[in-house]
Design a protein around this nucleic acid. Structure first.
Lengths: 300, 300
DNA sequence: TTCAGGCATAAGCCCTCCTTATGGGCCGTG
DNA sequence: CACGGCCCATAAGGAGGGCTTATGCCTGAA
């Protein structure tokens, strides 16, 4: 399609030459412009000659000690400079804009059980980064959605993405030390049955008791809160025993608000992963989030 | 100077990629944009990928049936389009502006004796071309002055310019047929002495009479008008005999307002030449002027 | 006169950018 | 449900644009 090509070429000048022209027009010097553009004087001369041939008129008058714009050159220079300012601005805006907003796709459960408690420290550490959370349970496709980085749960073997394991989605009973004291301490799994079980319908309880060698939990009254964070809060308040993912509550375990009476954890094979496109590994905001979340999880 | 280079590169995006981006953003299609730019879809894809890596963020979301701009892309697109419109405008302006004004540097004598009478027909033939005359006797340097084309007199052997000989700057007596009739016709050079000589101090008269084998012209009263056109007008009016360059008055000779009684012409070695930079041979306005002036002189 | 500064030009090489070829994902259709 | 079409991504390979180095010319200053 040489026809289309030639049509296009006649509509728009050779861009590299225009860029050189803009610099030369600003400096009124081939040598200085070449310096600014990081190329040799000969290259600048070459590009200007090229452009002059395209335009069909000289753009500069070569005077002994300096060059000056011809009438044609004077007509072009202001608009060209403005255009480049626009381009530079747009580019910078896209770059910094891209750096300024981090769009995180996260699972509902991770968002409420972990991010909600920890995100503050990220924003403190990176005050210029605005975080936009996109909370949903679908598997995001970075090519189709405007997402920078995502939290997924699953096996961790997705093709075409960079993955970092955050922690296993295991589960184990937790309660407040005060509540444990009411029955003289929780020594063995069966002790838990003497305490209120939070959300006893949760399949995790069944799995865990089976793993602990106890019979399936008898049907009991109890509310189903559906979010670990709520159950954990109830547990902290001493209202009962919750079965939650230990990793979500490292801080509470550390400061004694909760205790994990048994090392035994249930595991349904899920884990939480941080994923993002490999090509963007070193984009500042991606790197920042990755480093922050890994450090945070490693135990701060 | 890789330092300067990298600085520059980070300020401004790769221009070719930006041009492709602009087209893709307009069409929201790699294939269509590539078509408009006269390249393959693969090339467009390549450039966009390049730009996305530079910006640090995807610019398009690849949806099944079409693509859409990401937030970053939306931020860039308007300014980029505007910038390209500016560039295109500036370029077109320079081009057409360059086409619309023809700057002719001409010798005073040629301007008043020839151009003044003929230029009208050029402007009729090229109504969209404005002619700016720069009348001076210095030798213009196309690299230093904003001149498109020039008339020079001399030997015609200037380096670095394209030259076309217009005519010799020869000279010969001319008079009106009516005046000649008053003395029964001008048969031989000596007959001229019986008529008023216009500008008898002109060196051309001396040269011509010498060439004609007559003694040097005796000192006579007479005005020196200094421009052939004036003398020729006086001659046409029957006021005397003028010595002028025949080529300047082809029309007058053709329609009988003037006659050239002798074939003998004086010649001081000068000629008139059309000169211009070789590189601009095919620039429309240059070609137009060249073709017009050569045809005009060739006779018609 | 010589020197220094600045642009033009020539030769040559490298790297960018484009092309061709192929594959994958999604849609509509028979 | 399979098939073909549309569209984009990717890989490999080649051509040419554009850069560099080297050199020359011109001019103005010391």
């Amino acid at each position: 399609m040489p026809e289309l090509k030639s049509r296009q070429v006649s509509q728009l000048p050779p861009l590299q030459a225009i860029r050189v022209f803009e610099a030369v027009a600003r400096h009124l010097s081939f040598t200085k412009a070449a310096g600014e553009l990081g190329m040799t004087q000969a290259a600048a001369s070459y590009q200007i000659k090229l452009l002059e041939e395209r335009v069909g008129a000289p753009l500069f008058l070569r005077r002994p000690r300096q060059i000056v714009l011809t009438e044609a050159g004077q007509r072009m220079a202001p608009a060209v400079s403005e255009a480049f300012a626009l381009l530079g601005g747009a580019y910078a805006a896209a770059r910094s804009g891209a750096d300024g907003v981090l769009c995180v796709s996260t699972l509902l459960t991770f968002a409420s059980n972990w991010l909600a408690q920890h995100l503050g420290s990220f924003q403190v550490a990176h005050p210029s980064l605005a975080v936009r959370l996109d909370t949903s349970n679908r598997l995001v496709d970075f090519a189709r959605e405007d997402i920078d980085i995502a939290i997924r749960s699953g096996g961790g073997n997705w093709p075409g993405v960079e993955v970092h394991k955050l922690f296993n989605a295991d589960f184990t009973p937790m309660l407040s030390p005060k509540l444990a004291a009411t029955i003289g301490g929780v020594k063995e799994p069966a002790d838990l049955l003497r305490l209120p079980i939070l959300d006893p319908g949760d399949i995790w309880w069944r799995d865990w008791f089976i793993a602990a060698g106890l019979p399936e939990l008898a049907k009991r009254p109890g509310s189903s809160m559906g979010a670990q964070a709520y159950e954990a809060n109830a547990a902290i308040a001493g209202q009962g025993v919750a079965i939650v993912t230990a990793a979500f509550f490292k801080a509470e375990l550390a400061d004694g608000r909760l205790i994990q009476p048994f090392d035994l954890v249930g595991d349904d094979g899920h884990a939480y992963w941080l994923v993002y496109p490999p090509a963007r590994r070193n984009v500042p905001k991606i790197r920042a989030f990755r480093e922050w979340i890994l450090a945070e999880i490693a135990g701060q």
